[in-house]
Design a protein around this nucleic acid. Structure first.
Lengths: 110, 110
DNA sequence: CGGGATCCATTAGGATACTG
DNA sequence: CAGTATCCTAATGGATCCCG
């Protein structure tokens, strides 16, 4: 996921292409979430990948990270305004992917 | 790229996620292409990856492979009707990715 | 011409242990 | 609570050789 892109499609795939990034985005669309809320919502993710993907999404400007200097510490992740521009794109991708899964299911059932 | 997906976005990323797949699709949108035309259009791709990606796109029903039993052999790859349903999706992805690249360019220039 | 097969390098991702 | 660090495996992609 490090290589440079010539085609803007690859840019988007690069941004969303981590194994858990679509799930992370999905959960953040609803409301901001704390780190360990995301861990519970996505039980299979390792915390290495969760924090790594969150840092990458933050660097792309898609996710905001808010630290509340309380004890115990509280960190909240939310979709940035810019990150919200991804929502309609994600919906189109999702619709096509959903249809594609159904198509494959039907052909395997026939 | 083998793991199963729970989220349809991952399905689309799986379909388009090979390193050269967006470029292959891009070239096939214009007109059908022969194997070695694609090699020339995408000079950096290895022939292993080109043929592997073409086989995967064919299995997903996105690309049609037509063999003309001539001597020397001629094989033509084209977007299937179903593959054309990807075009509007790709355009949305492309627009977002293009904007994202510009955004990153501007922030690095400031 | 249009590939397949093989072997190797790089990268993504997981498991576990530890920390401010 | 919210991570980092380290080590390891699996997956992706590249290079080279070969074939009908």
């Amino acid at each position: 996921m490090i290589h440079q892109r010539e085609c803007p499609i690859e840019t988007l795939i690069h941004v969303l292409g981590g194994k858990w990034k679509p799930m992370i985005l999905w959960h953040l669309i609803g409301s901001p979430k704390r780190y360990n809320e995301l861990e519970k919502l996505i039980p299979e993710v390792s915390q290495k990948m969760l924090s790594q993907h969150l840092r990458e999404l933050e660097q792309e400007g898609i996710v905001d990270r808010t630290i509340y200097p309380t004890v115990p510490p509280k960190v909240e992740y939310s979709l940035s305004d810019y990150g919200r521009t991804l929502i309609p794109v994600a919906e189109v991708m999702c619709a096509w992917g959903d249809n594609h899964n159904k198509r494959k299911y039907e052909e395997s059932a026939s």
